[in-house]
Design a protein around this nucleic acid. Structure first.
Lengths: 222, 222
DNA sequence: TCATACCACGAACAATTGTTCCATGTCAAA
DNA sequence: TTTGACATGGAACAATTGTTCGTGGTATGA
């Protein structure tokens, strides 16, 4: 880690230039190209600042390789304000499996699985990508929610639900997690399966713990 | 245009290698790297084949520039990969509704609906985006395929299926369209519902018309 | 057979490009 | 002021990398 994450103006310029160059040329620039663009006459100064950027975790370099540059995720985040906003893609971390017999695990399993990529245009406007996570359905336990084995459920972290939301709930009496449409009807909470041929169940509000709201379900079949 | 679009095996290898190298290193390879990967001892031979590829419109080169390579759309098409380099997003046209009582409509309804945006990384590598289209599920008729009303089915145009594929089939005796897993068992074709609690149906190969392969199913619940 | 086009090889050359060294400048703390 | 960390500049060097040239092989067709 660097002492301070503050970047000099030159380093910011370099970062921006590298980004622009790469997006338009689909290859990284050379040291001299950077120097010219950022008005640095000496290659050694460019080199110096590049190593600084590496220290700060914004850049990766491959020694002795021409154009051996690569922007890290951190750099993308730093540059484009929102790296995904540029491309319209949202990265949703795949946190693990969803099992009927356990509450949702929210442990930090980042890196364990490849993140899911979703087009921002496919999501409701209001969700923030930070609140999103994804789970893979494990067995056939979610059949009544029209969700089958291997499906990926994209969820939004929240502990309360509005009527009509599809949510993941933890039922304390049964010790089970299920996906259901949620309707609070005062006395009781009605949990409606997505499968129209199946009947709803009624439980007391105290025995329902909303774990998150289901934003999207996707199934890859090929 | 080149006299013949036929590529020598070496040229195909080069194309593949360049693509792989670029996707994993986010920069083009050098001539010598190509040579080593494709087992060409001389840089001039690599150079020779590169100019050939340029002539055939599969490659663009920038002279005197290290790693001055770029794959054209044609090349990506040739390799059989989705051109994800563009933005990572693929636009899939939403062609209309899928109804149980009709074959798939393939009419040109472009512009009628907003296209679906899918991350290329969520699709199998080999699909070409031109072959993809999407349909919205109309009623509850696809329940046995674990697909419910409003779901969006992304399909790949094709008239034949391999065993295990989930396909949309038109059953001529019943005059219905359904989504099923396809297994050709010689005498009969077994159509297996995605819902494991339901039984397969067996029909004669003559009475099945494969309309397309289901690549993905997505459901927006919020 | 000869001619021609196509493809391949190796080597040398020239340009590009990363690396290093030394000197200088700036600025804040001691 | 002096010190030291940090930043900059210029130049030379060394490695990487694109280019070119001469040679030779293998088909196909005249």
């Amino acid at each position: 880690m660097a002492k301070k994450d503050k970047l000099s103006e030159r380093q910011q310029n370099i970062l921006h230039y590298v980004w622009e160059y790469m997006t338009s040329n689909s290859r990284p620039p050379t040291i001299r190209e950077i120097g010219e663009a950022v008005k640095i006459s000496s290659t050694s100064v460019v080199n110096y600042n590049l190593t600084k950027l590496v220290d700060k975790g914004l850049l990766e370099r491959q020694a002795e390789v021409s154009r051996g540059l690569r922007l890290t995720d951190k750099a993308l985040h730093f540059i484009g304000q929102v790296p995904k906003a540029v491309s319209g893609l949202i990265n949703v971390p795949l946190m693990g499996d969803i099992v009927a017999s356990e509450p949702l695990e929210v442990g930090d399993t980042s890196g364990l699985y490849d993140p899911i990529e979703i087009s921002a245009s496919m999501l409701p406007d209001r969700v923030k990508s930070e609140d999103l996570f994804a789970l893979r359905v494990n067995g056939d336990s979610m059949i009544d929610a029209m969700v089958s084995e291997g499906d990926i459920v994209v969820m939004k972290r929240q502990s309360e639900a509005r009527n009509g939301d599809m949510v993941a709930v933890w039922l304390t009496p049964d010790d089970t997690t299920t996906l259901k449409y949620f309707y609070n009807e005062g006395e009781k909470v009605r949990l409606q399966p997505a499968n129209p041929t199946m009947d709803p169940i009624y439980v007391s509000p105290a025995s329902v713990q909303v774990q998150g709201k289901v934003v999207m379900v996707m199934r890859q079949t090929a």
